[in-house]
Structures are given as C-alpha cells and as structure tokens.
C-alpha cells in the first residue's frame, strides 16, 4: 500500500501525485519507471515514469495524463488515499556520463520524467540545456524545477501563448547547427515529438536518447507486450529500455502498437482529446508530418 502525500492538478487532464514508496525511492535512478495498479483484483497495471524522488523521505512523484480507465481513477484519488500496488523501479537507468553539453527536450508531460535526467546530467558535470514545450501555456509543467536544474531553459508553445512560438525541434536544430553542437540529446514526450527530435538531430550525428512508454503488463521481461523494433531487431522496453537510440527506433510501428487498445481507451475517455491526438499522429510522413509535430499530448 502506498499513501498519496500530495496531489497537484497541472491542467484539466494532467496530474501530479507524490506517494510513499521507500524502497523505490531509495533505489530508483534517473530514467526508470514504475507500474501502478489501483486495484489488485481487477485493475490494469500501467507504466508511469518516475518524475522525482526523495530517498530520505521515502516518496516518489508521478505525473500522468488521464487516458484510460486506470488514469481516470487515479485522478480521482486525493491526499491520504491509497494506491494498492506500485512495482519498481523498472527498466535500465539512463546511462549518464560527463560528455560536455547535453540538450534535453521535453514535450507535454514528458517534461516530468525528463526532470530527473536533467538533474543527473547536471550532477555529472555537464552543461545542460533544456527545451521544454507544450501546446499552450496552461499545459506547460515543471518549468520552475527545470529552471532550477538546467543551465539554460527554452520554453516553446505551439500557439505562442508563452515563450517562443513553434515546435521544440526548432531550437533543437539551432543548437545542432551552432558552433558548439551538443554532445548528446535526450528527447522525452509524445512519440511523434520524439520521432521528429530524432530526425532533427540525425543529420548532425548528435546521439539522441529517447524514452519509450509502450503498453506493458508485467514490466519484468515476461509478457512481450512492450516490444518495439530498434535497429531492425525486436527489443523489449521493460528490460532492454525504456531508453533507446532515437535514430534506430521504428517509430511508425511503435506508434501503431500504442493504438492497440485505443477503442477501449476511447470508450473509457469520453472527451475528444485523444481523437485529436490520433489524427495528428496518424499522418507521420516526412515534412508535412514534421509540421504537425506538437509538443503536447499523452505520454
């Protein structure tokens, strides 16, 4: 049993929960995730990335967007309520070394899992530039945390309501073209955003790590539901990932598989937001797709 210590609502569909999980808090490292299950009789197990943790106080923080039945139920919980099961930390931690300058790109709620990675790169002695984006000002999260952690923060919104108007790939491209291009890039956000971040950095040979959040059940290397194609080979996000070389990921297949249970999710999610998202990622071809790459959406 895990107790909710703090709850914040970032926007209509995005929530922050701080929950007790002493062992996970002690052993988690940047880049890892947990599986959350509200009810161990009939509940689904859903992967959520760890957005923050405090080993001394024994808590972890999770940021999620309401997509299906479980996330909607999770959103109804309040401070003092319990979550029956949290399994983790899962996945391989981010491989962090001192490389020089690192550009970290986060879109939508992907900014939350990016935060521990930014901190870890910084602690390893790197210069960290964070590019964080959202569809609109109200959907931007973790800005203050990022400003505290990174050397430089660039805010981008699709509609220009805050920060720079445009897509996160634009400042990313400018950094790649600059006289001192980054040694590494990290991109976490909706698959379509990660896809276009990877295609942005590829011509400049900037190694770009992405974090995938596929469908999974056990998260321990048994079910195979999380499989993706990376470099032409089948890989399992739960034990081989969640982080992969963005230049090697078969994005179109990954995005296809993410839609496996979409009819069910939609039935559970009466609002039309997901349809809008799907319509956008349904046409991921070349430049016209790039123009549609937005920073918001589900992770």
């Amino acid at each position: 049993m895990h107790t909710i210590l703090e709850k914040r609502q970032f926007s209509e569909e995005v929530f922050y929960l701080r929950v007790t999980a002493p062992e996970i808090a002690r052993n988690r490292r940047a880049g890892q995730f947990v599986l959350v299950q509200i009810d161990t009789d009939y509940g689904e197990r859903i992967p959520l990335t760890i957005a923050d943790a405090n080993a001394a106080e024994g808590w972890i923080a999770l940021v999620f967007q309401t997509v299906g039945a479980t996330t909607h139920k999770l959103a109804l919980k309040g401070v003092g309520d319990k979550i029956e099961a949290i399994l983790g930390p899962l996945g391989r931690p981010t491989h962090i070394t001192k490389v020089g300058t690192v550009v970290c790109v986060g879109g939508g709620i992907g900014v939350a899992p990016l935060y521990p990675i930014v901190k870890a790169y910084k602690e390893a002695g790197n210069r960290v530039i964070a590019i964080i984006g959202a569809r609109t000002k109200d959907l931007l999260i973790f800005e203050q945390e990022m400003r505290a952690a990174a050397d430089e923060v660039i805010v981008v919104t699709d509609d220009g309501s805050y920060g720079r108007k445009g897509l996160v790939t634009e400042p990313l491209k400018e950094y790649c073209e600059s006289s001192e291009p980054p040694a590494e890039a990290v991109a976490i956000g909706p698959p379509i955003m990660m896809k276009f971040c990877a295609s942005t950095t590829k011509p400049y040979n900037v190694h770009t790590m992405v974090s995938l959040n596929t469908i999974m059940i056990d998260g321990t290397g048994m079910c195979g539901g999380c499989r993706v194609t990376v470099g032409g080979k089948t890989k399992f996000v739960c034990v081989d990932g969640p982080e992969f070389d963005g230049h090697q990921v078969d994005w179109d297949n990954m995005m296809l598989r993410m839609k496996a249970y979409k009819p069910r999710e939609d039935a559970d999610h009466h609002k039309c937001h997901m349809e809008i998202e799907a319509a956008r990622i349904g046409d991921p071809d070349g430049d016209s797709g790039a123009a549609k790459a937005k920073a918001g959406g589900a992770r």
Binding site: G224, V228, T234
Partner: peptide, 15 residues
Amino acid sequence: ENLIGVFSANEYLTR
C-alpha cells in the same frame, strides 16, 4: 509480427 493483434501467449494468457 508487430502488427496490432499479434500477441505472445504469455501476454494473451496473462491478460
């Protein structure tokens, strides 16, 4: 093999 609707027996039976 990675189309929607292809499952390992592990995933299918676990669900």
